[in-house]
């Protein structure tokens, strides 16, 4: 198991949208190494002729009748929103425009 660098953890954290502190990143780098060292043994058992399983229950194309049924009202849907405006979720700028 090669050492997992702080830079690698920082890159993963960015992919996961986690604004971690430098301390957290250093701590996680050490822990990742210990955990990956313990779990990497799955590779011993995973021979090429074994079919992977994604899900224990092989249901396919689950559908239900396409009928209208009651959903949330706008007020209900917005009841837990951190911010809302005009019956809509208000979100921070998304395109990097000037505020």
């Amino acid at each position: 198991m090669s050492r997992i660098s702080n830079e690698e953890v920082a890159r993963i954290a960015q992919l996961a949208r986690l604004d971690l502190s430098a301390n957290e990143i250093a701590e996680l780098a050490g822990e990742m190494e210990a955990i990956l060292g313990a779990v990497a043994r799955v590779q011993e058992a995973a021979k090429s002729d074994v079919v992977p399983t994604s899900h224990p229950l092989a249901l396919v194309n689950v559908t239900r009748p396409d009928v209208v049924r009651p959903g949330l009202t706008p007020a209900n849907a917005l009841s837990g929103a951190p911010a809302s405006e005009d019956d809509r979720f208000r979100v921070p700028q998304i395109l990097g425009e000037e505020a």
Binding site: L36, V39, V42, A45, A46, V51, P52, T53
Partner: peptide
Amino acid sequence: AYYGSAQKVRTL
């Protein structure tokens, strides 16, 4: 190496 191998273990 990781997720794929784990899914194979699941089959076994």
